[in-house]
Protein backbone atom coordinates (compact mmCIF):
# COMPACT_ATOMS: atom_id res chain seq x y z
CA UNK A 1 0.00 0.00 0.00
CA UNK A 2 1.45 3.33 -0.99
CA UNK A 3 1.78 6.18 1.44
CA UNK A 4 -0.41 8.71 -0.41
CA UNK A 5 -3.14 6.09 -0.65
CA UNK A 6 -3.27 5.50 3.09
CA UNK A 7 -3.32 9.23 3.69
CA UNK A 8 -6.32 9.53 1.42
CA UNK A 9 -8.09 6.78 3.29
CA UNK A 10 -7.53 8.27 6.71
CA UNK A 11 -8.84 11.58 5.42
CA UNK A 12 -12.00 9.93 4.20
CA UNK A 13 -12.47 8.23 7.55
CA UNK A 14 -11.27 10.54 10.27
CA UNK A 15 -12.08 8.11 13.10
CA UNK A 16 -9.10 5.84 13.75
CA UNK A 17 -10.48 2.34 13.37
CA UNK A 18 -9.03 -1.09 12.69
CA UNK A 19 -7.20 -0.58 9.41
CA UNK A 20 -7.37 -3.51 7.00
CA UNK A 21 -4.92 -3.94 4.19
CA UNK A 22 -6.27 -2.97 0.79
CA UNK A 23 -6.07 -6.59 -0.32
CA UNK A 24 -8.07 -7.80 2.69
CA UNK A 25 -10.65 -5.09 2.09
CA UNK A 26 -11.03 -6.09 -1.52
CA UNK A 27 -11.41 -9.77 -0.67
CA UNK A 28 -13.90 -9.07 2.09
CA UNK A 29 -16.09 -6.87 -0.08
CA UNK A 30 -15.89 -9.35 -2.96
CA UNK A 31 -16.81 -12.35 -0.85
CA UNK A 32 -19.62 -10.43 0.81
CA UNK A 33 -21.15 -9.50 -2.53
CA UNK A 34 -21.02 -13.08 -3.76
CA UNK A 35 -22.60 -14.48 -0.58
CA UNK A 36 -25.35 -11.84 -0.68
CA UNK A 37 -26.16 -12.67 -4.31
CA UNK A 38 -26.29 -16.41 -3.61
CA UNK A 39 -28.65 -15.85 -0.65
CA UNK A 40 -30.88 -13.62 -2.76
CA UNK A 41 -30.95 -16.24 -5.52
CA UNK A 42 -31.79 -19.04 -3.09
CA UNK A 43 -34.44 -16.85 -1.41
CA UNK A 44 -36.16 -15.88 -4.66
CA UNK A 45 -36.53 -19.56 -5.61
CA UNK A 46 -37.43 -20.80 -2.11
CA UNK A 47 -40.18 -18.18 -1.75
CA UNK A 48 -41.73 -19.45 -4.98
CA UNK A 49 -41.30 -16.11 -6.81
CA UNK A 50 -39.45 -17.75 -9.73
CA UNK A 51 -39.69 -21.35 -10.96
CA UNK A 52 -36.33 -23.14 -10.48
CA UNK A 53 -36.80 -24.49 -14.02
CA UNK A 54 -35.63 -21.10 -15.24
CA UNK A 55 -32.91 -20.10 -12.84
CA UNK A 56 -32.18 -23.21 -10.75
CA UNK A 57 -30.82 -22.33 -7.30
CA UNK A 58 -27.49 -22.54 -5.46
CA UNK A 59 -28.58 -25.51 -3.35
CA UNK A 60 -29.83 -27.42 -6.40
CA UNK A 61 -26.60 -26.77 -8.27
CA UNK A 62 -24.64 -27.90 -5.24
CA UNK A 63 -26.65 -31.09 -5.14
CA UNK A 64 -25.83 -31.79 -8.81
CA UNK A 65 -22.17 -31.08 -8.13
CA UNK A 66 -22.04 -33.48 -5.19
CA UNK A 67 -23.86 -36.10 -7.21
CA UNK A 68 -21.69 -35.70 -10.32
CA UNK A 69 -18.38 -35.68 -8.51
CA UNK A 70 -19.57 -38.34 -6.04
CA UNK A 71 -20.50 -40.81 -8.76
CA UNK A 72 -17.56 -39.71 -10.91
CA UNK A 73 -19.90 -39.31 -13.87
CA UNK A 74 -18.49 -35.88 -14.73
CA UNK A 75 -14.85 -36.88 -15.04
CA UNK A 76 -14.93 -38.20 -18.60
CA UNK A 77 -16.47 -34.92 -19.78
CA UNK A 78 -13.98 -32.82 -17.85
CA UNK A 79 -11.19 -34.96 -19.26
CA UNK A 80 -12.30 -34.46 -22.84
CA UNK A 81 -12.79 -30.71 -22.46
CA UNK A 82 -9.44 -30.32 -20.69
CA UNK A 83 -7.58 -32.21 -23.39
CA UNK A 84 -9.25 -30.14 -26.10
CA UNK A 85 -8.28 -26.95 -24.30
CA UNK A 86 -4.73 -27.96 -23.46
CA UNK A 87 -3.76 -29.40 -26.83
CA UNK A 88 -5.21 -26.48 -28.78
CA UNK A 89 -3.88 -23.82 -26.42
CA UNK A 90 -0.37 -25.24 -26.03
CA UNK A 91 -0.11 -25.62 -29.80
CA UNK A 92 -1.22 -21.99 -30.14
CA UNK A 93 1.53 -20.89 -27.74
CA UNK A 94 4.20 -22.98 -29.47
CA UNK A 95 3.26 -21.54 -32.85
CA UNK A 96 2.12 -18.07 -31.79
CA UNK A 97 5.16 -16.84 -29.86
CA UNK A 98 7.81 -17.76 -32.45
CA UNK A 99 5.57 -16.48 -35.24
CA UNK A 100 5.02 -13.17 -33.43
CA UNK A 101 8.76 -12.82 -32.85
CA UNK A 102 9.56 -13.58 -36.47
CA UNK A 103 7.09 -11.16 -38.03
CA UNK A 104 8.24 -8.56 -35.51
CA UNK A 105 11.85 -9.13 -36.52
CA UNK A 106 11.54 -9.52 -40.28
CA UNK A 107 9.69 -6.83 -42.16
CA UNK A 108 9.36 -9.11 -45.20
CA UNK A 109 7.67 -11.84 -43.22
CA UNK A 110 5.34 -9.26 -41.74
CA UNK A 111 4.39 -8.07 -45.23
CA UNK A 112 3.75 -11.66 -46.17
CA UNK A 113 1.75 -12.85 -43.17
CA UNK A 114 0.44 -9.64 -41.62
CA UNK A 115 -2.66 -9.34 -43.84
CA UNK A 116 -3.72 -12.94 -43.13
CA UNK A 117 -3.38 -12.40 -39.42
CA UNK A 118 -5.37 -9.17 -39.57
CA UNK A 119 -8.15 -10.84 -41.55
CA UNK A 120 -8.28 -13.81 -39.20
CA UNK A 121 -8.34 -11.41 -36.27
CA UNK A 122 -11.30 -9.52 -37.70
CA UNK A 123 -13.53 -12.59 -37.85
CA UNK A 124 -14.55 -14.75 -34.84
CA UNK A 125 -12.68 -17.99 -35.51
CA UNK A 126 -15.62 -20.11 -34.32
CA UNK A 127 -17.20 -19.14 -37.63
CA UNK A 128 -14.97 -21.79 -39.15
CA UNK A 129 -16.49 -24.55 -37.01
CA UNK A 130 -18.70 -26.13 -39.69
CA UNK A 131 -15.70 -26.31 -41.99
CA UNK A 132 -13.42 -27.66 -39.28
CA UNK A 133 -15.93 -30.38 -38.43
CA UNK A 134 -16.21 -31.26 -42.08
CA UNK A 135 -12.43 -31.58 -42.27
CA UNK A 136 -11.60 -33.10 -38.91
CA UNK A 137 -14.80 -34.84 -37.83
CA UNK A 138 -17.02 -34.49 -34.81
CA UNK A 139 -14.41 -35.73 -32.30
CA UNK A 140 -11.63 -33.91 -30.49
CA UNK A 141 -9.60 -33.07 -33.59
CA UNK A 142 -12.02 -30.43 -34.77
CA UNK A 143 -12.00 -28.92 -31.25
CA UNK A 144 -8.18 -28.84 -31.22
CA UNK A 145 -8.38 -26.89 -34.44
CA UNK A 146 -10.95 -24.33 -33.32
CA UNK A 147 -9.24 -23.83 -29.94
CA UNK A 148 -5.92 -23.38 -31.70
CA UNK A 149 -7.33 -20.87 -34.15
CA UNK A 150 -9.02 -18.93 -31.40
CA UNK A 151 -5.91 -18.61 -29.26
CA UNK A 152 -3.09 -18.31 -31.79
CA UNK A 153 -4.11 -14.98 -33.31
CA UNK A 154 -4.12 -12.89 -30.09
CA UNK A 155 -0.82 -14.51 -29.07
CA UNK A 156 0.84 -13.65 -32.38
CA UNK A 157 -0.48 -10.09 -32.33
CA UNK A 158 0.58 -9.44 -28.73
CA UNK A 159 4.08 -10.88 -29.26
CA UNK A 160 4.49 -8.83 -32.41
CA UNK A 161 3.48 -5.66 -30.53
CA UNK A 162 6.02 -6.53 -27.82
CA UNK A 163 8.82 -6.83 -30.36
CA UNK A 164 7.98 -3.48 -31.90
CA UNK A 165 7.99 -1.85 -28.47
CA UNK A 166 11.55 -3.02 -27.75
CA UNK A 167 14.10 -0.43 -26.88
CA UNK A 168 16.77 0.33 -29.41
CA UNK A 169 19.35 1.11 -26.75
CA UNK A 170 19.37 -2.49 -25.50
CA UNK A 171 19.84 -3.81 -29.01
CA UNK A 172 22.74 -1.38 -29.39
CA UNK A 173 24.33 -2.78 -26.23
CA UNK A 174 23.87 -6.32 -27.52
CA UNK A 175 25.40 -5.50 -30.89
CA UNK A 176 28.34 -3.86 -29.20
CA UNK A 177 28.96 -7.15 -27.39
CA UNK A 178 28.85 -9.01 -30.73
CA UNK A 179 25.58 -10.76 -29.87
CA UNK A 180 24.23 -13.04 -32.59
CA UNK A 181 20.76 -12.45 -34.01
CA UNK A 182 19.57 -15.47 -32.03
CA UNK A 183 21.04 -14.04 -28.84
CA UNK A 184 19.40 -10.67 -29.47
CA UNK A 185 16.08 -12.41 -30.02
CA UNK A 186 16.21 -14.59 -26.92
CA UNK A 187 18.10 -12.36 -24.48
CA UNK A 188 16.90 -8.87 -25.48
CA UNK A 189 13.68 -8.96 -27.48
CA UNK A 190 11.89 -11.84 -25.76
CA UNK A 191 12.29 -10.59 -22.15
CA UNK A 192 11.15 -7.15 -23.28
CA UNK A 193 7.93 -8.59 -24.67
CA UNK A 194 6.86 -10.25 -21.40
CA UNK A 195 4.04 -7.86 -20.44
CA UNK A 196 2.67 -7.91 -23.99
CA UNK A 197 3.11 -11.63 -24.23
CA UNK A 198 1.11 -12.36 -21.10
CA UNK A 199 -1.67 -10.01 -22.13
CA UNK A 200 -1.86 -12.09 -25.31
CA UNK A 201 -1.69 -15.40 -23.45
CA UNK A 202 -4.55 -14.40 -21.15
CA UNK A 203 -6.71 -13.10 -23.95
CA UNK A 204 -5.84 -16.20 -25.97
CA UNK A 205 -6.85 -18.45 -23.07
CA UNK A 206 -10.30 -16.84 -23.10
CA UNK A 207 -10.58 -17.44 -26.84
CA UNK A 208 -9.44 -21.03 -26.38
CA UNK A 209 -12.08 -21.68 -23.76
CA UNK A 210 -14.67 -20.15 -26.04
CA UNK A 211 -13.55 -22.58 -28.73
CA UNK A 212 -14.10 -25.53 -26.39
CA UNK A 213 -17.57 -24.34 -25.38
CA UNK A 214 -18.85 -23.44 -28.82
CA UNK A 215 -17.21 -26.44 -30.45
CA UNK A 216 -18.80 -28.86 -28.05
CA UNK A 217 -22.17 -27.18 -28.10
CA UNK A 218 -22.18 -27.12 -31.89
CA UNK A 219 -21.31 -30.75 -32.47
CA UNK A 220 -19.72 -33.28 -30.15
CA UNK A 221 -20.13 -36.60 -28.41
CA UNK A 222 -18.46 -35.72 -25.11
CA UNK A 223 -17.17 -32.84 -23.00
CA UNK A 224 -18.64 -30.39 -20.52
CA UNK A 225 -20.16 -28.35 -23.37
CA UNK A 226 -21.80 -31.52 -24.64
CA UNK A 227 -23.18 -32.18 -21.16
CA UNK A 228 -24.66 -28.66 -21.07
CA UNK A 229 -26.45 -29.17 -24.38
CA UNK A 230 -27.89 -32.52 -23.36
CA UNK A 231 -29.07 -31.16 -20.01
CA UNK A 232 -30.60 -28.16 -21.75
CA UNK A 233 -32.56 -30.42 -24.10
CA UNK A 234 -33.96 -32.21 -21.05
CA UNK A 235 -34.80 -28.92 -19.27
CA UNK A 236 -32.32 -29.94 -16.56
CA UNK A 237 -31.44 -26.37 -15.62
CA UNK A 238 -29.47 -27.42 -12.54
CA UNK A 239 -26.98 -29.40 -14.62
CA UNK A 240 -26.72 -26.59 -17.18
CA UNK A 241 -25.71 -24.20 -14.42
CA UNK A 242 -23.28 -26.76 -13.05
CA UNK A 243 -21.61 -26.93 -16.47
CA UNK A 244 -21.44 -23.14 -16.72
CA UNK A 245 -19.78 -23.03 -13.30
CA UNK A 246 -17.20 -25.58 -14.42
CA UNK A 247 -16.21 -23.38 -17.35
CA UNK A 248 -16.05 -20.35 -15.07
CA UNK A 249 -13.78 -22.23 -12.69
CA UNK A 250 -11.58 -23.26 -15.61
CA UNK A 251 -11.29 -19.65 -16.75
CA UNK A 252 -10.36 -18.40 -13.29
CA UNK A 253 -7.84 -21.21 -12.82
CA UNK A 254 -6.07 -20.50 -16.11
CA UNK A 255 -5.89 -16.76 -15.43
CA UNK A 256 -4.54 -17.37 -11.93
CA UNK A 257 -1.85 -19.69 -13.21
CA UNK A 258 -0.83 -17.25 -15.94
CA UNK A 259 -0.66 -14.38 -13.43
CA UNK A 260 1.62 -16.47 -11.24
CA UNK A 261 3.95 -17.29 -14.10
CA UNK A 262 3.98 -13.67 -15.23
CA UNK A 263 4.95 -12.49 -11.77
CA UNK A 264 7.83 -14.95 -11.81
CA UNK A 265 9.12 -13.60 -15.14
CA UNK A 266 8.51 -10.02 -14.11
CA UNK A 267 10.48 -10.06 -10.87
CA UNK A 268 12.75 -7.34 -12.24
CA UNK A 269 9.99 -4.74 -12.45
CA UNK A 270 9.78 -2.34 -9.53
CA UNK A 271 6.72 -3.09 -7.42
CA UNK A 272 4.60 -0.47 -5.75
CA UNK A 273 2.73 1.36 -8.47
CA UNK A 274 0.85 -1.66 -9.74
CA UNK A 275 -1.02 -4.22 -7.64
Amino acid sequence: MSAPMSMGLSKARPMPSVRLSERAQRQLVGAGTVVALLLLWEGVVASGLVDPLYISSPSRILRVAIDQFGSGAIWPDIRVSSIEFLVGYVAAILVGIPLGLMIGWSRRLNYLLGPFIDILNAVPRVTFLPLLILWFGIGMNSKFAVVFMGAVIPIVIATHAGVRANEARFIRVARSFSASEWKIMTAIILPGTVPFLFAGLKYGAGRALLGVVVGEIYASTAGVGHMIVEAGNLFDTDTVFFGVLLFMAAGVAVTTILNRIERHFDAWRPRGLAQ
Binding site: V173, A174, F177, S180
Partner: peptide, 28 residues
Protein backbone atom coordinates in the same frame (compact mmCIF):
# COMPACT_ATOMS: atom_id res chain seq x y z
CA UNK B 1 35.61 -8.49 -27.94
CA UNK B 2 38.83 -6.48 -28.30
CA UNK B 3 36.75 -3.35 -27.56
CA UNK B 4 34.17 -2.83 -24.84
CA UNK B 5 31.90 0.13 -24.26
CA UNK B 6 30.74 1.61 -20.99
CA UNK B 7 27.53 3.23 -22.14
CA UNK B 8 25.76 6.24 -20.70
CA UNK B 9 23.23 5.62 -17.95
CA UNK B 10 20.45 3.03 -18.01
CA UNK B 11 21.97 0.69 -20.54
CA UNK B 12 21.81 -2.24 -18.11
CA UNK B 13 19.34 -4.93 -19.08
CA UNK B 14 16.61 -4.38 -16.48
CA UNK B 15 15.42 -8.00 -16.54
CA UNK B 16 18.87 -9.26 -15.58
CA UNK B 17 20.51 -9.11 -12.20
CA UNK B 18 23.91 -7.52 -11.61
CA UNK B 19 25.56 -10.87 -12.25
CA UNK B 20 23.37 -11.51 -15.29
CA UNK B 21 24.40 -8.18 -16.78
CA UNK B 22 28.10 -8.71 -16.18
CA UNK B 23 28.11 -12.15 -17.81
CA UNK B 24 26.08 -10.93 -20.81
CA UNK B 25 29.06 -10.12 -23.02
CA UNK B 26 30.78 -13.38 -22.13
CA UNK B 27 27.61 -15.29 -23.07
CA UNK B 28 27.66 -13.54 -26.42
Amino acid sequence: PDRAVVFQDSSLLPWRTVLGNVVFGLEC
